[in-house]
């Protein structure tokens, strides 16, 4: 089962099957399909040194084979095929100066997340889902010229980077449960000369009663002016959905999207 929507475009179903999504995980197992030295460290640092983990082709991570634009690499993680309730999904990038990109707590949303990341150099990106106490990893190798984390945000080339800062856009598709949100933010990593780190730290979705639906912990690798894709069950997809986000400079961002 997959919640990936490529099939709604003509020819998209066959193309998706042929595409696979980078060198994605093809088989279940306990060997690292990317044979990368970072994976052991990152399991210890970001997954709490689990005794067991495995790969599973049902843990989908869709990515371009080549970054094309190292500042915006589009990713879609789909853990809806794993069957069990997903407690959280940890996104790591093996060779990033900030390996821990994001932690997604799906809560009452479905375990699907679309986003874009900056890529500093070629290597694997992984999504590890915690399901019933077990870690299941999916990923893709992305070729990249790199430099995405150390380049200044494009907005700094303008005379006033605060123009439009914080503008939130979004839309809810109640029939398919999709929610897409974008937010104008430089997402400065602090690695570009003379530009201090200034990035989002978390984003929360809330229901009509203000109760939390899902939560995202955000770190430096998320792209400038990020766009996020969520999947909601029918009751929540009827809306309205509130969005609250914060950054490391104390700014807060709010929005509400109705069906």
């Amino acid at each position: 089962m997959t919640a990936i929507l490529s099939h709604v475009l003509p020819g998209g179903e066959a193309a998706l099957a042929a595409y696979g999504g980078g060198v994605a995980v093809q088989a279940a197992g306990t060997a690292d399909p990317f044979d990368s030295g970072m994976w052991e460290d990152h399991r210890e640092l970001y997954l709490g040194e689990p005794a067991a983990w495995r790969t599973d082709p049902a843990m989908r991570l869709l990515a371009p084979r080549s970054a094309e634009d190292a500042r915006h690499v589009p990713i879609l993680v789909d853990a809806t095929g794993l069957g069990g309730p997903v407690e959280r999904i940890v996104i790591t990038i093996d060779y990033s100066p900030f390996p821990l990109a994001m932690v997604f707590h799906p809560g009452r949303a479905l375990p699907l997340l679309g986003f874009g990341v900056k890529y500093e150099m070629a290597g694997p990106i992984r999504a590890s889902a915690l399901v019933g106490g077990e870690w299941i990893m999916g990923g893709a190798f992305i070729d990249a010229m790199g430099g995405g984390c150390s380049a200044p945000a494009v907005t700094h080339a303008r005379s006033d980077w605060q123009d439009g800062f914080g503008e939130m856009r979004g839309r809810l598709w109640p029939d398919i449960g999709r929610l897409r949100i974008s937010l104008r933010h430089p997402m400065d990593t602090g690695l570009a000369d003379g530009i201090p780190a200034h990035h989002l730290t978390d984003l929360t979705l809330t229901d009509a009663q203000g109760e939390e639906i899902a939560r995202l912990e955000i770190n430096e690798p998320l792209e400038e002016n990020p766009a996020l894709t969520f999947l909601l069950p029918p009751d929540l997809a009827a809306g309205p959905v509130g969005i609250v986000a914060r950054d490391n400079s104390g700014y807060r961002f709010r929005g509400e999207v109705a069906a």
């Binding site: 475009l9 998209g12 595409y19 766009a227």
Partner: peptide, 10 residues
């Protein structure tokens, strides 16, 4: 409501 990765893979 597609994410860019889905439009690409299509």
């Amino acid at each position: 409501g597609l994410a860019p990765a889905e439009a690409l893979a299509a």
